[in-house]
């Protein structure tokens, strides 16, 4: 017998220790998110998953589920805020989808589609961020980094290699490679690493496989991210005994 909270009027069951995001996804309710990944400790930095809990805004990926909470997510007010966050991310980096290998499989792009973002609206910053093509098998394109830290977390927590890090503060914050030279070639990253699989955008790319899936068959061509994310989420039945995603 588990406790429940209310999400947009629907009753959502949760197990002790689950966050609002985990319980919602497991019960088949989508909350938009970028830096949240079911296999990692929540980070709470992208703020896309912001919901109103008993009238106060908070990140649902870090908010512990509690019985009786009244939570709003799918409201025009919150989606307008999410739209603005996505627009700022597009204006801040160099996100040129037509030439990006991740296009069609990119979470940022798919969220833009789902939230009906037709323009970044803001003045584009067009930052100068040279790519790192030093590694024989892996390309790093910093132009698209949204600072979600998933690669940082995956590399240190799962791969035990600590290849990536974030440096700087505020608008100068950026992804770095932990090597004396700063070059990816001088790290022990490998194609099979978890850090290779978690980038939600097109920063960390295996070389020589780009554009292999035709337009129309890519991940978010077929179904919007709001439907896809529910398929990817650990289901309620598995929630008590660990999640299906972690057992793979």
């Amino acid at each position: 017998m588990s406790d429940t909270f209310h999400l947009d009027g629907a009753e959502v069951p949760f197990e002790s220790g689950q966050t609002v995001m985990q319980a919602a996804l497991a019960a088949g309710h989508y909350i938009p998110h970028l830096c949240y990944h079911p296999e990692f400790k929540p980070h709470g930095s992208c703020k896309l998953c912001t919901v109103k809990v008993n009238g106060r805004t908070t990140a649902s990926c870090t908010m512990p589920a509690e019985a009786g909470l009244e939570i709003e997510s799918e409201t025009e007010e919150l989606n307008a805020l999410r739209r603005t966050l996505v627009q700022m991310l597009f204006a801040e980096g160099n996100h040129f989808c037509p030439s990006c290998e991740k296009s069609g499989n990119c979470m940022l792009q798919a969220l833009g589609y789902d939230l009906e973002v037709h323009t970044a609206g803001f003045r584009h910053l067009y930052p100068d961020r040279p790519v790192d093509a030093s590694h024989p098998d892996i390309l790093l394109d910093f132009n698209r980094c949204i600072l979600c830290e998933l690669c940082v977390r995956a590399s240190s927590e799962v791969d035990g290699k600590n290849v990536f890090g974030l440096a700087g503060r505020g608008i100068t914050k950026h992804l770095i490679v932990n090597a004396e030279s700063g070059q990816l070639a001088d790290t022990d990253i490998a194609l099979a690493d978890k850090a290779m699989q978690v980038c939600p955008v097109g920063v960390i790319l295996p070389k020589r496989v780009g554009f292999s899936i035709p337009i129309g068959s890519r991940r978010y061509d077929e179904r919007p991210i709001s439907a896809q994310a529910l398929d990817d989420a650990p289901r309620q039945s598995a929630a008590s005994g660990g999640c299906t995603a972690c057992e793979e």
């Binding site: 597009f90 160099n94 996100h95 040129f96 989808c97 037509p98 030439s99 037709h118 323009t119 970044a120 584009h124 067009y126 930052p127 100068d128 961020r129």
Partner: peptide, 15 residues
């Protein structure tokens, strides 16, 4: 289109 909305391909010279 992308160029009208984001600068697009021609804007790749902006940096």
């Amino acid at each position: 289109g992308s160029c009208a909305i984001t600068g697009g391909l021609p804007a790749q010279r902006n940096h």
